[in-house]
């Protein structure tokens, strides 16, 4: 039994300690916004936040997340209005969409750590998120836009 706090809700899950966190999020908690791409920390599709820091859920045993705050794409905002989500919609970043939950979670982590990221910062922070559709130029533009929106929101 593992107790997890996902998107602010604490719940007990009857799963073995070494089950990957991603399995629990998708198959047990049924939060399928977070995607499975590779299972090897190679693609970034499974990115969630653990106590605010980005994490590849596919290579994290669920036991390591017990007692910590997990945020998935569903938990960014109740209505899709997080600045990064708004920027993504505004610039129509998404192609097939498979990688985008991970891209967005990494972008949120970046803007939190660096509120005014440069192109180089964006490249460095999102270099672990692969997009098979090649939406990289739009992702980069959207991160800049999201940084601006985030500043306006906090003002």
């Amino acid at each position: 039994m593992v107790s997890l706090t996902i998107n602010g809700k604490t719940q007990d899950f009857d799963v073995p300690d070494d089950m990957p966190l991603l399995w629990v999020i998708r198959d047990v908690a049924h939060l399928t916004g977070t995607k499975f791409g590779c299972g090897l920390a190679q693609c970034g599709a499974c990115t969630v936040h653990l106590d605010g820091a980005p994490l590849r859920a596919c290579v994290t045993p669920v036991g390591a997340a017990a007692g910590k705050a997990i945020t998935t794409i569903e938990g960014l905002s109740p209505d899709g209005t997080h600045p990064v989500q708004r920027a993504w919609a505004e610039l129509d970043v998404v192609q097939c969409g498979y990688c985008q939950s991970g891209q967005i979670m990494s972008a949120v982590a970046l803007i939190k750590a660096k509120p005014e990221p440069t192109d180089a910062d964006i490249d460095a922070a999102l270099s672990g998120n692969i997009c098979r559709c090649g939406t990289y130029p739009r992702i980069r533009a959207a991160v800049h836009r999201a940084a601006t929106l985030a500043k306006e929101t906090t003002r």
């Binding site: 070494d18 920390a41 190679q42 990115t47 820091a53 980005p54 994490l55 590849r56 290579v59 994290t60 045993p61 390591a64 990494s106 972008a107 982590a109 970046l110 803007i111 939190k112 750590a113 660096k114 990221p117 910062d121 490249d123 460095a124 922070a125 999102l126 270099s127 672990g128």
Partner: peptide
């Protein structure tokens, strides 16, 4: 290293992509 990861300002990787994103507290099972 794959993913073109970098040292970053404090050695813990780029802001937004810290080493801990993939490297946990212990080897995976």
């Amino acid at each position: 290293h794959a993913q073109a990861v970098v040292r970053g300002p404090d050695g813990h990787g780029a802001p937004g992509l810290p080493c801990g994103t993939c490297h946990g507290e212990s080897n995976p099972p």
